[in-house]
Amino acid sequence: MRDDSPQACAASSMSTARRTLLAVVIGAAIIGAAALWWNMSRPAPQTPVAAAPAPEPAAAPAAPESAAAPAEPVVQYPVEAQPAQALPLKAADLGTVLTDLLGRKAVLEFLALDEFPRRLVATVDNLGRSHAPPMLWPIKPTPGRFMVEERAGGSVINADNSQRYTPLVLLAESVDTGKAVDLYIRMYPLLQQAYEELGYPKAYFNDRLIAVIDQLLATPGADEPIQVHLTEVKGSVASLQPWVRYEFSNPAFESLSAGQKIMLRVGSVNERRLKVKLSAVRQQLIKRVVPR
């Protein structure tokens, strides 16, 4: 018999949740993306859903009608030139360099290396939007159980839930930020190509990355415990996945981007620690760009 209680339903949801958080932890360590958790829907990556207050990718200014060629796109944070001793990576080299950064055990256990640049770029881009579909994440599923607690005012996220993410936060903190950004720069041609193929031929992924980091750092604080609820599903057909229906009860929190929701849901202590790491990554990224 299927158990559709909030606790049992949420258990499957949190398998995806741990997967998404780890994706961001590794993504932040590799390129400073962020920490991500709890995705609810599946929009196609080629047509990402806009969600306020997500910053849109840098766009090319309109060219005058008399211009002979289209105007160059505006670059806010160009990536520095490749040093001679660190040539750009090929897709076939990613497994080796990621193992050097994270360790063989972590790569084998967590990463999905097939189409890694596409997965990573789509995930980062979606952090600043309303949904971050788990099928696009560059990591493998991780087991886990999400805990809610019933109180007089409704369901809240159990205080012990944040403890499950502490090891992942420690992983992000353990990765050398400078080495992570070095790898990001070497990987950047692959990431930029994937970003253009995602639907942004006149924008730069590095601009989008920094914009998403800024958005995550601006995540508002929240008093704990945070109240959640299962959304009502109308119709005669029963929901086959009731666990995907958890939402914030506070409309202001529910209107945040997918990445900001995750920053709230990992718990206040983990959120503060992740913000410290993100700030360090951002600082390194800004230092490593050159004006055009």
Rank of each mutant, 00 (worst) to 15 (best):
M147G: 05
F116Q: 04
N39P: 13
R164F: 04
A60Q: 15
M263I: 00
L98Y: 05
I185N: 04
P55N: 06
R245S: 14
P201A: 10
V237T: 12
E149M: 08
R151F: 09
Y77T: 10
R118T: 14
D182F: 00
Q46P: 00
T16G: 02
I286H: 11
A33N: 08
E56L: 14
Y184T: 04
V156Q: 10
Q85P: 00
L21G: 01
V244Q: 11
I262K: 09
A238L: 13
A68T: 14
R42C: 02
G267S: 11
E232W: 03
L36Y: 15
A52I: 09
V290T: 15
A52H: 11
T47Q: 14
R2K: 02
L217I: 08
L217D: 07
V237L: 08
F205L: 11
V148Y: 07
L190T: 02
E56M: 12
V244N: 12
G259A: 05
S174G: 07
G235T: 06
I213L: 05
K179W: 01
M187G: 05
L120G: 05
P78M: 10
F116P: 05
P43Y: 12
A44M: 08
K234D: 11
V175N: 02
L127F: 15
A106V: 14
L94Y: 02
A71M: 14
W37F: 07
V79L: 08
A152Q: 15
Y184P: 00
L168Q: 13
D214M: 06
V97G: 02
L120E: 06
A23P: 01
S249A: 15
T166M: 12
P64E: 14
Y204W: 15
N250D: 15
G259N: 03
I210V: 14
T16F: 03
K287G: 12
V228D: 01
V97P: 03
A23L: 02
S257C: 12
A59M: 13
R119C: 04
T177C: 04
Y246F: 14
A172M: 14
S249D: 13
I26E: 02
P43Q: 13
Y200C: 06
E56W: 12
Y188W: 04
V237A: 07
F146R: 04
E196P: 00
A194H: 04
K179Q: 12
P251E: 10
I210R: 12
V281H: 07
E80R: 15
F110N: 13
V74P: 02
L198Y: 01
A51N: 13
P64Y: 14
R18C: 01
Q163F: 10
A62S: 15
L87M: 04
K234A: 13
R104Y: 00
S236E: 08
P220Y: 09
T99N: 05
P291A: 13
K140F: 00
S174R: 13
